[in-house]
Design a protein around this nucleic acid. Structure first.
Lengths: 127, 127, 127, 127
DNA sequence: GTGGTCTAGACCACT
DNA sequence: GTGGTCTAGACCACA
């Protein structure tokens, strides 16, 4: 289904949430679809079940999935996703930080803009 | 001189390095200017000296400042800053991640683009 | 007959017992009325028969229904309902917890009181 | 500081979050106050550190506290508490469920109302 | 089988 | 010292 990058500084559970968010938002995982059980994904990825559960719990909290004990975990309706005003601000702050870094490193605003366009175009096509 | 945000989950030493980078690149701290001693800044900010030390070490490693033993720490010539290829890649990755997050949150490509322009304009003005 | 909410974290068997209690106490299901067989309700709701069984067992234990072996399951006389002292305490505790939560969330005592009245009025009308 | 009820069906981490919410909202823990470190509280309560951390993480998410790695965990400004519309709804639903239960058990609306007043008065005085 | 909670103990980065 | 993440393995209620 997907691979983890153990060398990455991103924590495992965050790699998992991010990947699921991507799969869900791009429509590869449709609303209502069953996602792997905690134990199954744990085996598949070679990761401890607690780690998977942490990821699932976070995804549920943010409205991407819902869980029914004893039944399984399912992709929620996209309309249930709560675009936390706070989350948007956090993402903006992340981007702001990245651009700052680039400009400090000597890149011009034009070069920075190019990167932004590149990423957005890429993501835009998925939709 | 500047404030720290303990609530933020950005590490303190990173908040310090970022702030100094900003001050240096925008010219508020000119080449050759003396910056506070570890001990002084530690008291001013109410932060552990080791933390300041770590920030200064990092700034020196990246060429933003230099230390004259027994004399003090000074702002380096901007031309000494090493535009670490690695650092550029890391910054790009950060930005990429931020935009992904925005799009996952349900923002349209147009909205994301607006944010990009907004952020870059902000930065452009600093320069 | 009624819907289940898998998204809710209330267990399915509890959703079922609660719904039956409501139907019985409001008189929609009269004393002596036959209720669906485990198998039928299981099919109707798309739920595991064991779950229905558990709900019926609980309802019987509390005196809401009774089973005539080989004939079916029936609504009991309301006078047979055992007002478990324990259950009353549990319910009170639940309410107490809910109000605490509301007050912790920053609502004023007045606002909480309003909600209490609102909820009780709702229920009063059912009776 | 406080005791846990191991016989309770409430999970340990939830008992902890609830207790802290109470202490914070009643002003017993003032804004900015340092709360015990994960390890300390873990020893005090005889509970695994992970369990304490789960509680703290939840409290932070809801805005009751904030954490600074390497420094400690602190009580946040009450204004930072996010009265999640959802949380209010959940609490209301809890109360609704409790009242239903009481009325099903044969209590009158008046008796139920008395309980509500009792709890609210109790809590109101704390403030 | 499912998810949810908990323990014990380890390792990490930051202060 | 602090919090944050992860593993291994256990137990529970629910379906």
């Amino acid at each position: 289904m997907f691979e983890l990058d153990l060398r990455s500084h991103k924590s495992i559970y965050e790699q998992i949430t991010d990947k699921f968010k991507e799969l869900i938002m791009t429509g590869e995982l449709e609303c209502g679809a069953k996602i792997p059980s905690v134990r199954d994904l744990s085996k598949t990825l070679g990761v401890n079940p607690n780690t998977i559960q942490k990821a699932y719990r976070e995804l549920e909290r943010q409205g991407y999935i819902y869980t029914a004990t004893g039944v399984g975990t399912f992709v929620a309706d996209k309309r249930d996703i709560k675009p936390d005003h706070e989350a948007v601000e956090k993402a903006k702050e992340t981007i702001r930080g990245g651009f700052k870094e680039l400009l400090y490193l000597g890149l011009s605003a034009e070069e920075a803009m190019k990167i932004a366009q590149e990423v957005i175009r890429e993501k835009g096509e998925d939709k």
